[in-house]
């Protein structure tokens, strides 16, 4: 049996007095597509930040890809993020003064060395071969999100995290982005964790968990 990509036991996170995440036991297998559903404030973003190494748990154990994240230093977490995780944001968060290809190269820069040819290929993979030199301001929402995906997968992460990746997109773009993610996953075999409040988006996954007020209330397996 393979080691699960994400394994938590009694994972909690509190901000001051507020408990954002009640003790949570979760396992995500390698290559699985997990959708996390819940209302805003239900703790789903908190879970994503913890799993992505952006934040530290208040209690419990959290291991991602076999690494115990609570044991890592601040810089160790950064190194974990750049080698292991690709993140897609709702607001894209592209650097406004860099072109599409340069935005992808920024990720390469922090990971190791920039390689423009490879960054171009990644953009071609997400279907943006014709918009390499455009800045984010000149791209549509769907295109920006595809740059974001190219940036997230450029370092061959084992885990792709999406924080409402389609939240700002119309229906057509949403389907395109999710289709793209599906294709990429089929090729690169990374694990996907998507946080969403959209049932339709969640339906693309293998499994959906429902969080409410920091508690896992329901789990639904769609396919295995």
């Amino acid at each position: 049996m393979t080691v699960p990509t994400i394994q938590t036991a009694g994972l909690t996170k509190g901000y001051g007095d507020i408990c954002a995440l009640k003790p949570l036991d979760l396992q995500v297998a390698e290559g699985e597509w997990l959708s996390v559903m819940g209302h805003s404030g239900s703790g789903k973003s908190t879970l994503m930040n913890l799993v992505g190494g952006l934040d530290r748990p208040s209690g419990g154990s959290l291991s991602v890809g076999g690494q115990d994240l609570s044991a890592l230093s601040e810089d160790g977490l950064a190194r974990f993020r750049r080698e292991f995780v690709g993140i897609i944001f709702q607001q894209h968060h592209l650097v406004p003064y860099l072109s599409a290809v340069e935005n992808v190269m920024l990720s390469q820069y922090f990971h190791s060395v920039p390689d423009e040819a490879e960054a171009r290929l990644a953009l071609e993979r997400v279907g943006l071969g014709h918009r390499l030199k455009n800045r984010p301001g000149e791209l549509s929402g769907g295109e920006q999100q595809r740059v974001c995906i190219a940036r997230a997968i450029i370092n061959s992460p084992k885990l792709l995290l999406g924080d409402e990746p389609t939240g700002n997109l119309d229906h057509k773009s949403t389907v395109m982005v999710l289709e793209l993610l599906k294709e990429l996953r089929a090729e690169d075999r990374f694990t996907v964790v998507l946080v969403t409040h959209n049932e339709e988006v969640a339906a693309w996954g293998d499994r959906t968990i429902y969080l409410d007020d920091g508690v896992l209330v329901r789990e639904e397996r769609l396919r295995s």
């Binding site: 950064a78 750049r82 995780v85 990720s107 940036r151």
Partner: peptide
């Protein structure tokens, strides 16, 4: 920059 893996 920090989120995509830049150290402090």
């Amino acid at each position: 920059m920090k989120a995509i893996g830049g150290t402090r």
